[in-house]
Structure formats: structure tokens, C-alpha cells
């Protein structure tokens, strides 16, 4: 197990390296530089040359890349090109907002999905079951930006119940409702189906019949015997769910003008702010790799039947 953990952690290095390489190559394959502006507002040649040298953009590409990696390992991601501040500072400002939004959405998704999935499995083909199927179909097929638009129209424009611009100080409950609910919806839909399916499978197992035949109370059978085992597959969804929250945050933060790193990322891409694009992409890749890794490690701990090959 220790060997396996070490090997998996070491395997993260090449993955992150290639993510950096691909992003770097693509970003530099793009035509146009960060100092391109209107013909009328063009910078004097001298200033542009100085800036190019200051940011190291005149070095050969492989050298720029190695230089960047060297600094990135020490968590120095350089300075934003569009705003005169360090990338770390800009990301540190947006990250808490995105993290709060993401964690709220994840908790909400679990809070909806677990009870709904369990009840759907216990009462197959009941109203609740069909309701959860409906929710799952909507949540997984309708694009989240379309759902967001409908919510904004109904609750924001038409009923004027909820504000739909900005985030405030992170304590304004009414501002959080729509972004959180919409970001949570696809995950909730997916988790509900997984919970239902794995609960159904657990209920059909021999050990559940054994528990019943011992005369245990139905509640004990469901919670202690079936649910405990049914939750193992659910735990594996945390990896994809993290990726879903990250990509979801691009859309939700852009739509609701929330000053997190998802919106920052889209803005930086359109402004060709390489240092921010690189750092944010690496941060995302790191989060996803960590999420997948922890899922694999926890999975082994939860289910002793799964032996990891060392």
C-alpha cells in the first residue's frame, strides 16, 4: 500500500509535466502577442522590445519553457501581462470564491443525491423514483448554461426574487442560491443515479438477506449493511465530480459575473495573458490529479476486496 501510494504520487509528475508542455506549446502556437493592440494605440517599438525582454519572450521557446518550469516548481508563476500584479496574488484573490462556490455545490449535490438515490432504490418505480429519473435526465442532458439562463429569467428577471450579478462578500445568501444550485445540478443528477444503482445492487446481495434472516430491524439492515457497501462506488465519483465542478465554474462564474478563477481563466484566455493561463491550467490539472489519486487510495481502504498491485 505504501509502495503503491509512492508510485502513484511519482506518476503525477509526468502527467503535470505534459499538461504544462501541451498548454505552453499551444499558447505559444497562437498568433498575436499580448502587446497587440489597436493600430492607433500601438506601443512605441522601444517599449515593446523592453517589455518582451522583461517577460523573457525573446528567448527560444524550449528555453522559455524550462525557465518557466524551474520557477513553477518554486511556486513562482511570474507576473500577469495584462494587470501589473503577480499571478499568485491574482489567483489567491479568486481562489477562495471559486473554492467556496465549488464546495457548497458539492455538498448540496451530495445532500440531494444521497437521500434521493436511496429512496428511489427502496421504492422502485414509485413517484420519488420517477421524479429522480426526471431530475437525472434534465441534469445530465440539458446544458448547464441553458438551465442557468432559465433560472435567471424566471427568478431574476421575471419574478425579481433573486439577484443574478456578482458574488458580494461571500456571505450574501441570496446571491449564492442560483449559482450554487445550478453548479450542483449535473453532479446531483449523476450521483443520484449512481447511488440508486449501487443501492439496488447491495440490496440484492446475500449478506443483506442474511442480515434480514437474523431478524435485524429493517432500518439497521438498510443503513448498516446495505448503505455502507453501496456508498463505495459513490465515493469514486468524487474525481470526475471535481473535474465537473471546475469546468462548470467557467460557465457559472462567467454568467453570474462571479470574481473567481473560472471567470478569470476565460478572461485571460481572451486576453492572451499567458502567465495566468499557464498557472491556472496547472492548478486545475493538479486538483484533478489529486482528486483522482485520493479516490483510488480511499477506494482501496473502503473495500478490502480490492487489492492494489504493488
Amino acid at each position: 500500500m505504501v509502495n503503491y501510494t509512492i508510485r502513484r504520487v511519482l506518476l503525477m509528475v509526468p502527467t503535470l509535466f505534459f499538461v504544462a508542455l501541451i498548454t505552453f506549446s499551444l499558447a505559444h502556437a497562437a498568433p498575436g502577442g499580448p502587446f497587440d493592440k489597436d493600430e492607433n494605440k500601438k506601443l512605441p517599438q522601444q517599449i515593446e522590445d523592453n517589455l518582451t525582454r522583461y517577460y523573457g519572450l525573446d528567448e527560444p521557446l524550449p528555453q522559455q519553457f524550462l525557465l518557466y518550469l524551474g520557477k513553477a516548481v518554486q511556486l513562482d508563476f511570474g507576473k500577469s501581462i495584462q494587470r501589473n500584479r503577480s499571478v499568485n496574488e491574482i489567483i489567491a484573490q479568486g481562489l477562495p470564491v471559486t473554492a467556496q462556490l465549488g464546495i457548497q455545490a458539492l455538498l448540496l449535490a451530495l445532500l440531494i443525491a444521497l437521500p434521493l438515490g436511496i429512496v428511489s432504490a427502496l421504492k422502485q418505480n414509485s413517484g420519488v423514483d420517477y421524479g429522480s429519473l426526471f431530475l437525472a435526465t434534465i441534469g445530465t442532458t440539458i446544458p448547464s448554461f441553458v438551465i442557468a439562463i432559465l433560472f435567471i429569467y424566471i427568478f431574476g428577471v421575471w419574478l425579481r426574487l433573486l439577484p443574478f450579478v456578482g458574488w458580494g462578500d461571500g456571505l450574501d445568501f441570496r446571491r449564492m442560491i442560483m449559482p450554487t444550485v445550478i453548479l450542483a445540478l449535473p453532479g446531483a443528477a449523476f450521483l443520484t443515479r449512481i447511488t440508486r444503482a449501487s443501492m439496488l445492487e447491495a440490496l440484492g446481495q446475500d449478506y443483506v438477506r442474511t442480515a434480514r434472516s437474523k431478524g435485524l430491524a429493517e432500518g439497521t439492515v438498510i443503513i448498516r449493511h446495505a448503505l455502507k457497501n453501496a456508498l463505495i462506488p459513490v465515493a469514486t465519483i468524487v474525481g470526475p465530480a471535481t473535474a465537473g465542478l471546475i469546468t462548470g465554474s467557467f460557465i457559472i462564474e462567467t454568467l453570474f459575473s462571479i470574481p473567481g478563477i473560472g471567470r478569470l481563466y476565460i478572461i485571460s484566455i481572451n486576453a492572451r495573458d499567458y502567465p495566468i493561463i499557464m498557472a491556472t491550467t496547472l492548478l486545475y490539472a493538479f486538483l484533478i490529479v489529486i482528486a483522482n489519486l485520493s479516490v483510488d487510495l480511499v477506494y482501496g481502504a473502503l473495500d478490502p476486496r480490492i487489492k492494489v498491485e504493488a
Binding site: A27, A285, I288
Partner: peptide
């Protein structure tokens, strides 16, 4: 290892 949408956005 790349999330689909993230990779698409970069490309």
C-alpha cells in the same frame, strides 16, 4: 487526465 472541456477550451 485532462478534463474534456478544459482541453477543448485551451485548443
Amino acid at each position: 487526465a485532462f478534463p474534456d472541456l478544459l482541453f477543448l477550451i485551451i485548443i
